[in-house]
Design a protein around this nucleic acid. Structure first.
Length: 408
RNA sequence: CGGGCCGUCGUAUACCGGUAGUACGCCUGUUUUGGGUACAGGUAGACUGGGUUCGAUUCCCAGCGGCCCGACCA
């Protein structure tokens, strides 16, 4: 893409009403624009990042057998009354039609997915099933905050699974847990699997996937020797205590942001809708249901919180809006290099604007594309390459650069 | 929702009870050309509604909006 075509522009000053790093950098660089507190437009650069995160999640959900669907965001009141959520879920947005019919905006989709999937589940032979969607969620938060980290409208992957028995749910949980850890690794994040409360609708503990960052809203205790990690809201231990799991390590306290979670929903929802299946003996039984959430837009904010320096963002290659930022300096035409890179299947943002080199360098650092390629009177037919994360620039032919990128 | 702070060109800021200045941006021209080049000219602003006052962008009240802390976040 030619940068001159972007309708957005980089701001030199950070917006005064954004305090978190993710909001400041993403707004300044033109990835997102705030419509109101907790609600952002995703602009061309930002949407590319969001789509990349989404696709990584989609690949891994497909790999564990999830079937992608898209459910309505506008829900009839009746489904929420059936489960009791209409009165109990505080964050539920409720609205009325002009004929006084009442609706809810989806903040999670058990009320829709349960009757939907169970319509097709008649016997144990139809189980297990896992369906998911990647869709916008609405939550009537009392206070949105921290840029993309807590919005009233946010993009979430939510998968729902149905199992004939607890054992099968436990098996699937382990499968998804591995998939989640793989997803976060691909996104350049380290997530800790954290024991947490199951919330009002599940008596069991849930597991949260936490990324350590001061911009987060959760406090966790984690073992410095093993994988034990617990949300302080249910922790029986305190900072400095011995790890209850391995007995060797000590528990450290940290701030974290919840990027994913897993709930064992038990039979609550299927019972509420009275939707069961027939077991081998011909008896009616209710499945065990699981819910697996992953906040796509929040992940985007968390990545920026983790990957930045004083000059701007450093996107991991897997989610960067483009792989290469081509800067044409001092009147040199970079179109040839641009075409060569594109022909090689490399995503390029080509800064073809008529601005001074300093501006291009500064804005390239802010946008944070992993590779910077410069063509100028100095480089001749070659390109000068620098990683956003590094300090050293090297000059090579376009061919060599393409080779280098394809070997990475 | 409780508490705090705040609302001035597109962005960031300044001053002021007698209606606003600066920087960046943007437009025009010259200049410059490897880390936000320099100069000149131009463009553009007091959230809304009440009140006090001869006069309000400034003071007071309300509304709307934003940020932060807390609570909340099946």
């Amino acid at each position: 893409m030619r940068q001159s075509q972007l309708f957005t522009r980089i701001e030199r000053n950070a917006p005064k009403d954004e305090a978190t790093v993710n909001a400041q950098l993403l707004v300044r660089a033109g990835f997102v624009s705030k419509l109101m507190a907790g609600d952002y437009s995703y602009l061309p650069l930002g949407l590319r990042v969001l789509n990349k995160i989404e696709n990584i999640v989609r690949e891994e959900m497909n790999a564990v057998g999830g079937e992608e669907i898209k459910m309505p965001q506008l829900h009839p009141k009746a489904n929420w009354v059936t489960t009791g959520g209409w009165d109990k879920v505080d964050v539920l947005f409720k609205l009325k039609s002009r004929t006084d019919k009442e609706y809810a905006l989806g903040q999670s989709e058990e009320e829709v997915v349960t009757p939907l999937v169970m319509k097709y589940v008649n016997t144990y032979k139809d189980l297990p099933k896992a369906v998911y969607q990647i869709h916008w969620k609405f939550r009537d938060e009392l206070r949105s905050k921290s840029g993309l980290l807590r919005g009233v409208e946010f993009l979430m992957k939510d998968m729902y699974s149905f199992h004939a028995d607890q054992k099968d749910f436990d098996r699937f949980y382990e499968v998804v847990k591995k998939a989640y850890l793989k997803i976060f690794a691909r996104l350049g994040l380290v997530a800790k699997v954290t024991e947490a409360s199951g919330g009002a609708f599940s008596e069991k503990i849930s597991y949260e996937f936490m990324v350590l960052t001061d911009a987060g809203e959760d406090d966790i205790l984690y073992c410095d020797a093993c994988e034990f990690c617990v949300n302080v809201e249910i922790a029986k231990q305190k900072e400095g205590d011995k790890c209850p799991k391995c007995g060797k390590g000590k528990l450290a306290k940290a701030r974290a942001s919840e990027v994913g979670n897993v709930f064992d929903l038990g039979q609550r929802f299927v019972k509420a809708f009275d939707m069961g299946f027939m077991n081998e003996k011909g008896e009616k039984q209710y499945p065990i249901m699981g819910c697996f959430g992953l906040g796509i837009s929040r992940v985007m904010g968390v990545i920026v919180e983790k990957c930045n320096d004083k000059n701007g963002i450093l996107w991991p290659e897997s989610v960067a809006p483009f792989r290469v930022h081509l800067l044409a300096l001092n009147g040199v035409d970079g179109a040839g290099v641009y075409n060569d890179l594109q022909k090689a299947g490399i995503e390029v943002l080509y800064d073809d604007r008529d601005v001074t080199p300093g501006v291009k360098f500064a804005e390239a650092d802010l946008i944070g594309i992993p590779w910077r390629a410069v063509v100028s009177p100095k480089t001749g037919a070659d390109v000068e390459i620098k990683a956003r994360s590094g300090n050293d620039a090297v000059t090579m032919s376009v061919k060599e650069f393409i080779k280098k990128l394809s070997s990475n």
